[in-house]
């Protein structure tokens, strides 16, 4: 099973090595890891997507929580979290296919951020599933390069209150 773990850490040089080092040391598999500052510049939020059963998740959370720099760890349930990922995708195009690519982009609400004779670069933020769908539809045209940020997430306040 996949889990999104949201970790708040003290923001200082070296903290990422500690977190990443833990994952390699304990040989947990992570799918993605994204880090960025929070509303408080002294605190960084790291969002980690891991795969494993509940026992693995339990261990990951406890071990992460043990790190001195970690302020809190929470398991964001998929259905109770707002998740987003940003992708930048460069697609190969010809005069014939350019229109079709732009049309797909429009349907997804992706922005065209660059264009050349034979490529278009799109930007899209959305849930993982939306990104996957876009990638699937663009693939036949030929994706020449892609960069994804990895998932970031916050707990959904409205679902907590229910």
């Amino acid at each position: 099973m996949r889990h999104i773990i949201s970790v708040l850490v003290r923001n200082h040089p070296g903290v990422l090595s500690h977190v990443v080092g833990l994952f390699t040391r304990r040989s947990y598999n992570i799918e993605s890891l994204a880090a960025g500052v929070t509303e408080n510049p002294e605190i960084t939020r790291i969002t980690i997507v891991v795969t494993g059963d509940d026992r693995v998740l339990d261990q990951v959370m406890k071990q992460v929580n043990k790190l001195v720099d970690v302020l809190s760890v929470s398991d964001l349930k998929y259905d109770q979290a707002i998740t987003r990922e940003l992708a930048i995708i460069t697609v190969k195009t010809t005069l014939q296919t350019r229109g079709a690519v732009i049309e797909i982009a429009n349907v997804f609400g992706a922005k065209v951020v660059d264009m050349s004779e034979d490529t278009i670069t799109l930007e899209l933020s959305g849930t993982e599933r939306v990104l996957q769908n876009l990638v699937r539809l663009l693939k036949p045209f030929g994706i020449s390069e892609m960069a994804r940020t990895g998932m970031i997430a916050l707990a959904m306040k409205s679902s907590e209150e229910q």
Binding site: G21, T24, R25, S27, Y28
Partner: peptide
């Protein structure tokens, strides 16, 4: 056993 702090285990790669 890797990651379990087993006897004579150390993360030498790290």
């Amino acid at each position: 056993m890797i990651g379990n702090d087993a006897f004579q285990e150390v993360d030498i790669v790290g």
